[in-house]
Design a protein around this nucleic acid. Structure first.
Lengths: 208, 208
DNA sequence: GTCTATATCCGGATAGAC
DNA sequence: GTCTATCCGGATATAGAC
């Protein structure tokens, strides 16, 4: 959890914590679809039934709202990734990870889009986080995957690209949900997506 | 090429066409990183060495600039997809498609991000295009893939998800280039990415 | 803690001289 | 075709009453 993105304020009253939670939840949706500059305080306010000025009583400014929401998003984002364990069977470990990520993506697609948006802008707030904390974590998991490959439990694929592939596909169903639904004529559920991704990543499309 | 997104103006002088091209190129970059509302006419203008008012001589308003850029983007986007032929060998056809998409993504990452942005907003301008033209096209290619499966040339995967998988991965390297580079500590080239995706999609990570 | 009113700024767009 | 000047709406943020 990158402290660098947003400072946690000290000592909040009960209503303060409650209202800040209301605000960040509404803000997540607005920032995710409208982008940083496209989002307006007024839209966030009306979405959580609050007046603009009242909202600004709980947060000093727009930027602080954004930083808080982003920090919260990153927090939950890495948890399933961290849990990939070297001791587990690779197919099971990766399968679990994919399943959890898909569930998360369908459950909170706005979080996924918010993150995507930050990256599109060139990651002004989290560039440092990506190069340090995230890189270290990925290096660590890449080593695990390499170990699996060396012991013959996995085909010799590049660990980094394997990880990117999982991120890319799981996120796609959140970020491009509109397109997926338009093209398929329906919205695929968690199970269907998980099956599709797991099958493809692990087995591929080449005939047995 | 969706006519619905932007009308082509008739009869443009030589300088008009040239300057409009300058503008749309600059606009592509700004819209791609800042989003629709985040982009300002002034930024677009300064990026192509023009004054704000002068720019507005060539385009009536901001919206028209956006529509034009978006239409241009969609135009090039589908070409490689259309060329997937039922007569070709599946591995070759898909491999070629992936290679072309990756090359395109690395060559024009802004186009990819612009499209992603439009989808994130809920596809206000191209929702109709997605449900009609794009859906028809995907249905058609899905049938081709299904045919390959029926004749045993491909493993029994869901054609739609296979297509999404290819879109997701190829686009990831354009849209999340900042993250990829931060995590890997270097920028992978076209060949490396194409190999990684093709290998994964066709063969998967399970040991032979 | 919540409201009304308002200062301030910025971006889109137009008028009109050259 | 390009410029300067300007209007207008909308968005952030603050002041101050209640």
């Amino acid at each position: 959890m990158p402290r660098s993105v947003a400072e946690k304020p000290e000592k909040l009253s009960r209503i303060q914590t409650a209202n800040r939670a209301l605000i960040t939840e509404a803000a997540l949706e607005v920032f995710a679809t409208e982008g940083y500059r496209g989002a307006t305080i007024e839209r966030i306010a009306e979405r959580c039934g609050m007046s603009k000025t009242n909202l600004l009583y709980y947060f000093p400014n727009k930027d602080e709202i954004y930083r808080t929401v982003l920090a919260q998003t990153l927090e939950g984002w890495l948890d399933p990734f961290i849990e990939i364990s070297p001791d587990a069977d690779p197919e099971e470990a990766l399968g679990n990870y994919i399943a959890e990520k898909v569930a998360l993506s369908l459950d909170r697609p706005e979080a996924s889009r918010l993150f995507a948006n930050e990256i599109h802008r060139g990651a002004p707030l989290i560039h440092d986080f990506l190069k340090t904390e995230l890189k270290d974590l990925v290096d660590e998991k890449a080593a695990v995957i390499r170990q699996w490959i060396d012991s013959g439990k996995l085909a010799p694929v590049d660990p980094y690209h394997l990880i990117f592939m999982i991120w890319a596909t799981t996120q796609h169903y959140a970020d491009f949900a509109v397109q997926v639904e338009a093209v398929m004529g329906r919205a695929p559920d968690t199970d269907e997506i998980t099956q599709a991704i797991t099958g493809m990543i692990l087995k591929g499309a080449r005939p047995a």
